[in-house]
Amino acid sequence: MDLDLDLRVVTGMAEHADGGVEHGALLRRLAHAILGHGDLGAARAEAIATLGERRTVHACQIVAAFDGINRVADVAGIRTDPEMGERAAETVATLDIASMASH
């Protein structure tokens, strides 16, 4: 998977709020609100108005799925997959993953 995404957007450190992704900032706000930080009703309404219902539902499903799988990763204490090679090393460095207790 080779995507043109500024990884720093996931920690709010990207040069541009969207991180090079269409509606990136809006999607990030929606995720944050779903996880209990912010006005979910407002974020959901903004997403529906901008993306439409189907894309908003898709976004909700992705956030919920990863809210679940994050627990799986943290409970088992899995490591980054060595097969990911340089991409994993780049991600670890960009997101300061080594500082996370569950890593």
Binding site: V21, H58, F66
Partner: peptide
Amino acid sequence: RVQVELLASSTSAFNDCFY
């Protein structure tokens, strides 16, 4: 795909999960 990956990685970051 790129919007999905942004959401996935943002969710993990908000949860302090490296995955």
